[in-house]
Design a protein around this nucleic acid. Structure first.
Lengths: 187, 187
DNA sequence: CCCAACAACTTGCGTGCGCAACTATTCCGC
DNA sequence: GCGGAATAGTTGCGCACGCAAGTTGTTGGG
């Protein structure tokens, strides 16, 4: 018997995913760089800027950025040095801190955003016709929901991995909305 | 007027892509780690193992792995230390080198592969029903072809970026097949 | 009231990567 | 064939990240 399917279809599909992801990143990066924004910093500012108070708990930011808490900590260090964000002490929990966009930070993301959206369009959305795009996002959402439960709205930390794991188990639950929830484990 | 659309649909679509990619990586990594294979090493061995001679020029490997040539160089260093690959001098071009899988390397990928495929299935393919999956791969292929021309078969290095770039410009051409072609610039 | 378990960050350390510089070779025009 | 330009690969350097350990603060049971 053939020892192993070195070119299984599933590998091809996965490879396509990885290549598209990587290529996309490479197309988008340079434009952000023109505005002096590394991609991580850009996404961080974006996430902060579109949050009601313009601020997010460090842990939540980490989770949204798919970074470890230490990664987020240092990212916010950099943003702070650049004057694009600042740390704000949490009044109700003195261990905690918020990262908050500054006016300058908001200005900088917005400045980069218009052009960024054009590129996202050029290299991603406009490459597909409308039905294809919606099929793609629907599929991506399904995958995302399975591999990263808790990224969408109501969040529950991953249960510890079982033996015969069923990815479809325990569909979304609501969360108490109290702060300090919906984290994903630090990777 | 609203200064900038901080939650444009296109950003959502892109975010979905990034989250799905990241989540997938996290699901697949641990299993490879159990076999002592970091994801980069795994993909490298896989690419080498499924190449006719079990070997690839350093530059081609770099390009397939979406790494800079220095990144590939050091990756092969690591594989060599582990005894999973070795460098072979190129007989016709004394500057050049091949990376070649060793028997041990081949054994190791194959050992990890079966389980790996199961996971790819569980977290990616089987999450979607067949039509969804083929729609997804078709869309991914379109995006990949645009953002990373030269990844598919006949490869031509990216032309230097123009001003008003049209992604659909210059569709695939054939290449002379002589060695030392189809590279992507070193990033 | 107190202490132990826990939680939110931060920091020390090691690692992998890209860029730029460097070496060795090949290619090409004259 | 000679000399400069281009090419294949390696190496110095800096940087961002994750893990693990450390710090400070909170919580809940006795």
């Amino acid at each position: 018997m053939p020892p192993a399917p070195l070119d299984d279809d599933r590998l091809t599909a996965l490879g396509l995913f990885l290549e598209a992801h990587d290529g996309l990143q490479r197309r988008l990066e340079p434009q952000l760089a023109e505005h002096g924004l590394p991609p991580g910093e850009f996404e961080a500012l974006l996430r902060l800027a579109r949050t009601p108070g313009g601020r997010l708990r460090m842990s939540d930011l980490a989770s949204q950025l798919r970074l470890s808490t230490s990664g987020a900590s240092r990212l916010v260090d950099r943003l702070e040095q650049r004057g694009q964000a600042e740390r704000v002490a949490c009044p109700t929990d003195r261990r905690g801190a918020f990262a908050a966009v500054t006016a300058a930070g908001r200005r900088d993301v917005e400045a980069a955003l218009v052009e960024h959206l054009e590129l996202v369009n050029r290299w991603f959305c406009a490459v597909l016709d409308p039905e294809e795009l919606s099929a793609l996002t629907a599929a991506l959402r399904k995958v995302r929901d399975v591999v990263h439960p808790g990224a969408a709205a109501g969040a529950v930390p991953d249960p510890p991995p079982e033996g015969g794991t069923d990815p479809a188990a325990s569909p979304g639950r609501s969360r108490p909305s109290g702060p300090g929830q919906g984290r994903v484990r630090g990777r």
